[in-house]
Design a protein around this nucleic acid. Sequence first.
DNA 1: TGCAATGCATA
DNA 2: GTATGCATTGCAA
Length: 947
Amino acid sequence: MSDQKRLFLVDAYALIFRGYYAFIKNPRINSKGEDTSAIMGFMNSLLDVIKRERPDHLAVCFDKGGSADRVEMYEAYKANRDETPEGIKTAIPHICEILKAMHIPIMVKEGYEADDVIGTLSRQAEKEGYKTYMVTPDKDFAQLVTENIFMYRPVFGGGYETWGIPEVQKKFEVTDPMQVIDFLGMMGDASDNIPGLPGVGEKTAKKLLAQYGSMENLLANTHELKGKMKEKIEASKELGMLSKKLATIMLDVPVTFNAKDFELDQPDIPKVTEIFQELEFRQLLSNFEKTFALEATSTETTSNKTEIKSTPKETASAGAGQFSLFGGDISTSKETETVSEFTRNTTETSSHFYQSVASGMATKLFIKNLMAQNSVCFDTETTGLNPITAELVGIAFSWEVGKGFYLPFPEDKNEAQELIELLRPFFESETIEKIGQNLKYDIKVLAKYKVEVKGKLFDTMLAHYLINPDMRHNMDILAETYLNYTPISIEELIGKKGKNQLSMRDVALDKQTEYAVEDADITLQLKEHFEKELGAANTQKLFDDIEVPLLRVLAAMELEGINLNETFLNSLSEQLNSDIKSLETKIYAEAGEEFNIASPKQLGDILFDKLKLVDKPKKTKTGQYATGEDILSYLAKDHDIIQHILDYRGLAKLKSTYVDALPNQVEPSTGRIHTDYMQTVAATGRLSSNNPNLQNIPIRTERGRQVRKAFIPRSEDYMLLAADYSQIELRIIAALSNEETMINAFKNGEDIHASTASKVFNVPLEEVTREQRSNAKTVNFGIIYGVSAFGLSNQTDLSRSESKELIDTYYATYPKLRNYISEQIDFARENGYVQTVLGRRRYLNDINSRNAVVRGAAERNAVNAPIQGSAADIIKLAMINIFKKLSTGNFKTKMLLQVHDELVFDVYKPELEAIKTLVKTEMENAYKLEVPLDVELGVGHDWLEAH
DNA sequence: TGCAATGCATA
DNA sequence: GTATGCATTGCAA
């Protein structure tokens, strides 16, 4: 190895942005509501570099105040950059503080970019005999590469690549790295707003460079070019030279490379520890400690450096002769400490003991051991994702971290049932707690084997939903976030989805075991993690009293499904088809040509380019003409074609999304539609429904409403009952704000929108016009969504100023409502979250954003989330109570659907009166507010009639 | 084949 | 102005 000294220069902003966006779908938010994604991302990269390369010398370089020289040359330089995201701005001071504590020099020079600082330092270091590595993903740096200066680029998916001269030559098709400047100058750079030569992209730039070698030479020989390109380039010679200058990294920044200052020495460990703890970087802290602890030991030991040892890993199969393995003595034998590794742990790097259990005696012994536990994590493996058709392939169990067992299931149905019978005492035990990730799925699978899962439940997915509802809750994400562990991916096991995907049944037993037990093991670890965090506030109660009991309710509703009148839908489809056809003919005639009406792009071109229906049409953000419903509605009265298009769209949507789609969703084995309720996706606490979505079946238009006729009771002996909360969100906001005027209106059973209109427009209740009521209704809803005059005027015929006036009068009428709204916003500012009546939280990181648009959105969330969320809490309570009564009362009636403020039941006719009372009582009394809750009931032979 | 953009259904 | 899910087009890979 060369003993040449190595200097690493880190391009701070580039890594910070990269880190920030790596977490963009899943931002890291700590308990104080701070977005720490950028800090985390940057620190991960920095520690990674230190750990991998152990540089002798290291500095981190920042931009400051942009490049004065470049802006002087070209006003638009970097002008199109979006404003730096809030999460990055707030990260910078933290990062600087950490770097200081780590004794890593920060290099900045006012008026220069990090590129220039790095360029200058690397040249200076080169003269002093250093090898320099520029740590950055930014390709622009390639121009600086020499024999002694390299790029050290993080690559997607982890790891780094080093670019020396040969790599740059290959990447850019140049002979000398300096030509990268010409290359960038020619093709331009959208992100830096370097214009480049018009019409020249990457391909052409490479070609020209190969031919002419430099920008100057190209511009001097434009006579050799041909056609359009010749014209364009000759006309832009100045632009070309300017672009080249802008792309050139400066090498004469007034900074000095002082070797002594740049030496990497031991950080101030207590200080760094303190900062990391403050930011709640548990995993990062341990990485940090390992990174520097390792360095300490490796310098102390004189013996040859020991690389990280390979890890013990055991996948054993317990045959009948190995009973003792169940006795619990295994932990003493092979287990060693988890390896200290910076990178994520995986099944390859973590010590574990996963075992499959053979049939016969081994299984019996295993179950005996299982029954002796107080709390067990389990995970079912099946042949597919649909729990109604999926068959059990195996079940994994774990009750001790790092250890678990896998019980494979025979393919033969009778044998499988025999095996599950052995497990019945476990699943139906009231005393053994069951832990799982998305237990609703496992419960549904086991229900097919007539096994009920009883006893206390702990669902890690639900737990995390309450802890941080804005995140996603896949096990893989949770494992990576909280355990720094990457589980075996299902794709690794059964392949990408599509043609050649295997079934779990086709996977070798040892692989099944590794995968399945790993899931159970991880889930168990996550549980230990989350149960502590649930302690905060009312979260534990919400978990125990709402989400976990609801899981069983939802499982039952989903298994039950709902009956669908397919014959009816088929005839509806025919009708729609002929109507669509005739509209199509009319539209083509009016447009003078045939085109795809469903394509917004083509439609826009026809309407606005060809027919020129409007002087200056509105464009969407992608530059297309906007053809949304709101836009077209304005034009409808002037042009027949518009109304026809709107009708066409409506019918086409109806047909494809509902009338034709629903019959395909009927489950053959039950003949019914089984939706899947997602309990952990809506940040406010609502449920969502998919495959199919039964929460958006049409109702507003006459035509659409017909689809509801297709939802019918299970048989002649049943009727559908629909129970709706009337105005629940308005009642909640009235109650929470303690606005007496509104509360009294509800108490008196008034028509709330008319009542609001009467007060706001100052007319007697009987004289409220339809228009006044309608406007009052819009404002009432607007309040729930966090009104603005702008939004209101968009929704009504009112102008912006009329809207403002209406809102002002509204607030004057209901002063406490206004107070409540500002209280919510203040609360969010102070605490970083808002909460529902049951204490369900929603964190709002942007509430203090300096960006007014972003902040405004967070403020509307602060108003809406408690309202929408409280309504969700209340109906969840009602569902749990009703479900309980239906079971204990041995009713034949089943709860089938939930649509946010509505419940639908399949009612056994003899039970109708009892059920009506039961449902209304439970719903209206699910939660006590200052305002009475009101539930409207409807009964019918289909869902439409029930309304 | 997968993804973003657009549009639209519900509460 | 809040919260979702899904069909379609059209482009990228």
